[in-house]
Every structure is written in C-alpha cells, then in structure tokens.
Amino acid sequence: MSALSFKLRQAPTSVIDLSALIPSSLASLSVSEIENLVLGDGLHAPRVGDVFAVSGTPGDAMIVISGGSSLIDYVGAGLDGGTITVEGSVGGYAGRGMTGGCLDIAGDAGVFLASTAKGGVIHVKGSVGDFLGGARPGDKFGLLGGTVLVDGNVGERAGERMRRGTVITKGKFGAAAGSRMVGGTLWTEAGFGPHPGPLLRRGTLIGPSVDEVLPTFADCGRIDPVILRIISRYVADVLGPLAPSALPGKVRKLAGDMATIGKGEILLTA
C-alpha cells in the first residue's frame, strides 16, 4: 500500500493544527499543492511545506507522520477513512470528530482525544491526557461512537458526557472517569482512580478495582450479566489480536450514580 509521508523538519515552537491532513482531503491534490496548504488560521499560520518534508503518492488510503510533538494538535480530526500513522506523540484533540478509519499513535496523546468522534478506531501506544472522549465547552456530548485503545494510562475525567462508543486502557483511568456519562463503555485492565462515575446517568465502567467509590453508588453484589460476553466478542472482532482478554462471567456491580437517575454501573472484575 502506497503512503503519503510527512516528515517533521524540526520540533515546532508553537501549536500547529493538522486537521487538514486526512487522506480523503488530500487524495486529489499533487505533492506541491499539499505543500502549499495552510495549517490552521491566522496571518502567521504555516504552510505544510514549512513544517514537513512531503514525499510519496497522495491517495485515500494512508498517511504517515514521522516525528511527533505535544504542540501538534487535531491530528486525524475529521478522519473518515483510511489510516493515519504517527511515529511519535501528538497534542490535544487528536481524532476529534472522526467518523471512520484508523488513527495509530506510537507515543502519547494530549487532552480531549476522540472528542465527538462517531466511528473508527484509535490506538495510542503511550498514555493519554485528561478528558479522553470528553465534551469540550459548547459540545452537547463527548465520544459518540467508535473504539479507542490506550496501552498506557489515561488522565482525569475520561468519558466526560460520553454518549456511545468503547474506550479500553491497559493502564489505569485517572480520577472521575465517566463523569456525567450518558452511555458507552470504559474498560480498564489496571483499575480506576478515585471517584469514578460522578453524575453517571447511563453507561458501563469495567475494571478490577476502584481507588475510592463515591457514596452515591449502591452495591448490588455479584451478578452474571450477558452483556459482558457481548462486549468481549465485539471488542475481539474490532481489535483482533490487540483486544484484551475476555471478561469474566461474574462481576460485582455498583449501581449509580444515585445522585441522578442511577442507571449506570461500575462492574468490578476482581
């Protein structure tokens, strides 16, 4: 498969908006036209050729970004197909508004990863900042669909106002994961930080442990929900060999948040 490659010329000193660099937007352009694209807004916004050495063949299949930085924002924002591979870390808002395709990040990712995404798969091999799948000011909801896999840890308030979709981390979620969540699944293999699910309305949080449970969650004892087998099969189909081990049959259920309608749940697997 041919790829269009962007090699970072030097580490950026100010924030750069890469939302223009998605395969479907660049497929009909020549390399010289791509080099002349402006990255972001403003009089001093750089052109692609100022920031990257561009090579390869434009198409709607694959983009490779060599080199990373926490100042590179909106990588894969609006991605609707194909693959974007980043050989390094990225800044905030990566994968925002995605509807399809695959975003593969070799390093860390910043705040609001996958906010308002509706589809596709995001794989971060490092750790992720706060508000993964969260709603920014002005957004009605956060994550709306798709699958996010994080190999490292996740910051605070993951899934803020999340509506649909699945977020899986092999590491640990920070404080207040699932804040104001209205649907979807957060799954951790290492556990939750303190106070997950504040004002959780609906949705499922799955993990082996919780550092500190809010007093507004009710212990329902051990249950054997069919949904765990469904979730395990779905994730295995989507992620293949990257999928975590299947969930156990029986889990301990904490229902809440009873400070609101209380139809959400924390399922403890250990």
Rank of each mutant, 00 (worst) to 15 (best):
P12K: 09
I16W: 12
D17G: 05
L18W: 04
S19A: 15
S19P: 09
A20G: 04
A20P: 03
L21D: 04
L21A: 03
I22K: 15
P23W: 00
S24R: 13
S25R: 14
L26E: 12
A27G: 10
A27Q: 15
S30I: 10
S32H: 06
E33F: 13
E33G: 10
I34H: 07
E35H: 01
V38R: 11
G40P: 09
D41H: 09
A45L: 04
A45Q: 07
A45M: 02
V48L: 02
V48K: 01
G49S: 11
D50F: 13
D50K: 10
D50L: 13
V51M: 01
F52P: 03
A53T: 15
A53W: 04
S55Y: 09
S55L: 10
G56N: 02
T57L: 12
D60W: 00
A61S: 14
M62D: 15
M62S: 15
I65P: 07
G68K: 01
D73I: 12
G76V: 01
G76N: 07
G78Y: 06
L79Y: 10
D80L: 08
D80F: 09
G81I: 04
V86F: 02
E87S: 12
E87A: 11
G88N: 07
G88P: 02
S89H: 06
S89D: 15
Y93K: 14
Y93F: 15
Y93C: 08
A94R: 06
M98Y: 10
L103R: 03
